[in-house]
Simulated scan of single mutants.
Amino acid sequence: MINHVEFPVAEAEGARRFYEAALAPLGLTLVISIDPARTPHGGARHGFGKNGYPSLWIHQQGGAKLPIHIAFTADDRAAVDAFHAAALANGGTDNGAPGIRERYHANYYAAYVLDPDGNNIEAVCQRV
């Protein structure tokens, strides 16, 4: 089981705003922000999660990056739709509108966006 995931972003405050908005429909909120003076990279660090535990971390760090893919579980299809809309309204780029992805299975309802750093972020509901 995964305890948490962390990845670098080019600009932490813009990424924080993007993830706060995009993850809210999935029930994930900003749990903690760490001042740049207290980080090894010298850039801000933000943790998002549920029930007060940060399971997704972003930190500001320069240099070349390769994009990642991360998928978040949504409670229902409406949350997938809301994730997509919130992400687009907050600097994300459409990478796959909400809908069924039959190539995975008949109930795989997902939406994909690229965050401001080009990472492929997905919300998926696999229930009817």
Rank of each mutant, 00 (worst) to 15 (best):
P67R: 10
E6N: 12
R16P: 02
N90E: 13
A64I: 12
E6M: 13
G99V: 03
N120A: 09
L56P: 01
W57P: 01
G91I: 07
P25I: 06
N120Y: 06
R38L: 13
D81Q: 12
Y112M: 04
N3D: 14
I121S: 01
G42Q: 11
L88T: 09
A64W: 05
F72P: 00
P40G: 12
H41W: 10
A71H: 14
G118K: 06
H69A: 10
A78N: 14
P8V: 07
G99W: 02
I58S: 01
L30K: 05
H84A: 07
L56D: 01
T39F: 06
N107Y: 09
Y109A: 03
T73V: 13
A21G: 08
A106W: 12
G27Y: 01
R77V: 07
I68M: 13
F48V: 05
E11P: 04
A21D: 05
I100F: 13
R103L: 14
R101P: 06
E11M: 12
T93G: 07
N51C: 13
A64K: 12
V5I: 15
G43I: 07
E13V: 09
N107D: 10
A12P: 02
R38Y: 11
Y53I: 08
G43L: 06
G14K: 09
D76Q: 11
H59M: 11
L28C: 08
D75L: 12
N107R: 08
L88N: 05
F18D: 00
I70M: 15
A37D: 13
R77L: 09
E11S: 11
C125T: 06
